[in-house]
Every structure is written in structure tokens, then in C-alpha cells.
Design a protein around this nucleic acid. Sequence first.
DNA 1: ACTGTTGCAACCTTCACTGTTACGACTGTG
DNA 2: CACAGTCGTAACAGTGAAGGTTGCAACAGT
Lengths: 144, 144
Amino acid sequence: MSANSRLTIAAHALAWIGLYQRQGHEVATSEQIATSANTNPVVIRRLLGELRRAGLVESRRGVGAGWSLARELESMTLLDVYEAVEPGPLFAMHRTTPDQGCVVGHGIQPAMQGIYEGIEETLRRELARVTLEDVLRDVLAAPR
Amino acid sequence: MSANSRLTIAAHALAWIGLYQRQGHEVATSEQIATSANTNPVVIRRLLGELRRAGLVESRRGVGAGWSLARELESMTLLDVYEAVEPGPLFAMHRTTPDQGCVVGHGIQPAMQGIYEGIEETLRRELARVTLEDVLRDVLAAPR
DNA sequence: ACTGTTGCAACCTTCACTGTTACGACTGTG
DNA sequence: CACAGTCGTAACAGTGAAGGTTGCAACAGT
């Protein structure tokens, strides 16, 4: 499907900020998070910007600037993150309109639309069952 | 997610072949299916080739060549099609290894791996609940 | 005024998907 | 046996998303 890592990196960033704050720090910088995720700070800022628009994090500018959680990790689910960073649908329709003169060409899109909606709804329910607190717990439970 | 239309087109092709065969025809050509799906015959042949490898369709060459179903539509699910045309996982990990010296960088991949596996399993169950017979029925039920 | 960080634009590279052309391989028909 | 129609597949181009990188203005505390 040509999967991307946006949800993974976003969860990484949130878990990092959450843990950092529990260690007594006020804000985390995109530079620190990027080092942990082994990527570029701008990539982190772009993702966190989308999470800010969704109300999951806040940012401060100026000296002592950085990122902090807008809510507790317990109240954030992977669905919140998914919706913030993945706007489009999971499955795409035809790139060009199928032949409307053909029975199948005419009926296929409404048919698949209905099926896909049900499947995506199930995916969302599943994503909503996992909180970022769960993620952080699993992260800390990793061996070694 | 940069979704693609492979599952949609594959379902379209299978429904088309199935309906065509019920109308008394032996085999369908990639040309006919491509016309219905409004795409190029080679695109259809590539997709059907993957479905053939998965044992869902058969092809004949030579004069009177074309494609036919290898099984009844009732016995084919969207999961069969999905697995035939979408090899990779739904969500990707980091493109580069995260900082293993960081607690989060070290634990994030196993954590997300476990979470993603559960979610993909749910997705598969959902795809397995829809047969291609269901798809064809919905196609034929479209208004007008 | 200085400093460190965000916000954001601009650009590049990579990669998957899709579309297209071309042609050899195959097989039933005349 | 030649022909015709279709598959099988390689090769290449176009498109678009994702990710990486650089650069710089804006901001705010010291």
C-alpha cells in the first residue's frame, strides 16, 4: 500500500514528550525528539504542527521554547493521532470514472464505498482502543 | 496514506468476470475489463496475474484466450484479494533505526509492532467477512 | 542586542502506482 | 502451416506523496 511512518513517528514524539515531562522538564525541543527518532527536526515540527492543530500538543516560541502535551497521555488515543496526521481514506477508488454504461462500472463505486466505510469504521474503533499511555507503557516494557 | 486503487480494481475485475460468466461466456479479456474500469489492459493483466498466483483466477492463451474464475465468487473474500495485491504492512516503522541509546527510541518499535499486528489482524477479519459475491450483489443493487 | 527555538517556505530525492508502448509466446482456426 | 487474437512481461514515463534539507523570519526571555 506504500505505507508511511507518520503515525509511528507521531506516537514516538508524543511518548517522548510525555516521558520527558514526567522526568520534570517543562518542554521538549524538536531537536531532541528528532535525535531520538533519528530524523530531521523539521520533519518533527511538521508532524507536531498537525498534532497542535488537533489539540494534542502545544508549542512555545522564543527562548526556552519547545513542545508540551496539551492533554494527558491517558486521554489521547491512536485514533486522535491517526486523524490528525492521516486525512485521506484507506482505500482509493478508480482514478478515472469507470464506464457508466456497464453494469459493473456503474455499480462498483457505491458498492465498494459502502464496504470500505464499514471497514474503516472498524479500524477507527480499534485505533481508539489504544491510548498513548498504553504506547508509553509498552515502550518502557521493552526488554533490556 | 497515499491509498491506491488496487483492491478496488481487482474487485471490479472479479465482479466483471463473474457476471460475464453468468451470462454464459467462457472467458473475459483484459481489454473488456479495462474498458469497464476505464484503464489500460496491461494494468488489468498485471493485477489479474497476481490474482492468478493466488489461485483466484485462471488464464488461457492463444485464440479465444482470456480470464476465468478459478473458484466461485462465494468462496472468495476481500481478504483473499487484499493479500494477493497488497503484500506490505498497513503502517510503516521509522525509515532509519531510532536512537537505541534513548529509552523511547529503543522501545518504540517493538511497542508499535505489537499494536499494529493486532490492528491489522482486525482489518483482515473484517475483509474476510466480505465475499466477492457480496460485492457483486451490491454492485447490481446500485440504483438506476 | 543576543540567543535559541518555532513556523514555514522552497527545493530535492526517493519510491510506489499508474499508464503506455512494444513485442515475443501461445493456441485455436481456416 | 500461416494467421489472428490474446496473454506475459519488460521497459519507460508521468504523477504524487513522503521524507529530508536548507534557509530565514518571527518570537520571547535574558
